[in-house]
Design a protein around this nucleic acid. Structure first.
Lengths: 152, 152
DNA sequence: TGCTATTATTTTGATATTGGAACTATTTGA
DNA sequence: TCAAATAGTTCCAATATCAAAATAATAGCA
């Protein structure tokens, strides 16, 4: 790959990268959900709608310590986005779930991402999509090589 | 675009996205530059090697307030990565530059990014590269539409 | 020339995020 | 039965950040 192309591509990746979080944050400020940060939304996203994961499970997914998640969940419970459900089979576990309000924002965030992917790849044909996916998998492999704990 | 493909692509983008910073941080911990965070490296990157930008210029690029940059620069000066150079023509301005050590890390970071882009697009032909660039520009346009201040 | 407004940066005070260590509650297993 | 292990929480310290006030320098105008 030609040097200036590599440079241009890198700049493009970097600027896109930097903008995503900021745009998400901004969208929140303009929405009906003004009392929540993008990190909290990502916690809600990890907690997810269809199963009740435990605290450590979610913390591991978000790559934060359980202590940090506890305080996030405290805030999210106070703001009525998240519920704590004690497991009955093993009462050490706390299972997390979304309230009605939490489910609303979960769907809004999902929709933002769907639009983002559409803007990126909406008009591609199957072959092109496959090609993109391949490139991203290469990038993922590079990152996993640099840090083996990145594997899911 | 098919629903499950969109989903898969989104997950891929999200996981790659989340891993980049973490891998960069990890690479630092294992390098000779243990006293510096990834945010500080990005500040060094913005300060850059070949011109002496002012504090506000760099702060604007990094999208942080000048006050925040001042404290970052204080740390980076103390750790011998960055120099403050007072402009002689207008003594209100502070111009920023890299020390020998700062230039070292600048190049290391540049190299990390080059490898990352290579892993992503190293074996593509011109047509494919053009296609990728187009897709990224679409994504950028989407983000700029969502937040007009994203424009450079 | 001598103020006054403007501009660039720094300082200060407050808030938020995070990790790590100590602690509590519960379960497991010898 | 009780010591060890496990899940979660609490508490403390470190860091990052912003907004507003303070400081320093310059520009422009009467």
């Amino acid at each position: 790959m030609d040097f200036t192309t590599a440079r241009r591509l890198n700049q493009l990746l970097t600027s896109v990268y930097g903008d995503i979080l900021r745009v998400e944050e901004l969208a929140l400020r303009k929405s009906q959900f003004k009392d929540i940060s993008i990190k909290e939304v990502h916690a809600i996203d990890a907690i997810s709608m269809y199963e009740h994961k435990t605290t450590s499970q979610v913390a591991r997914e978000l790559r934060i310590t359980p202590g940090t998640l506890t305080t996030m969940v405290n805030h999210l419970v106070r703001k009525d986005y998240v519920m704590r459900l004690r497991s009955d089979d093993d009462r050490r576990f706390v299972r997390l779930g979304l309230t009605r309000r939490g489910r609303l924002i979960y769907r809004a965030h999902e929709s933002f991402h769907r639009h983002m992917v559409e803007s990126f790849a909406g008009d591609m044909n199957d072959e092109q999509l496959h090609f993109i996916e391949k490139a991203l998998l290469n990038l993922q492999a590079f990152l996993e090589f640099a840090d083996p704990t990145a594997k899911k």
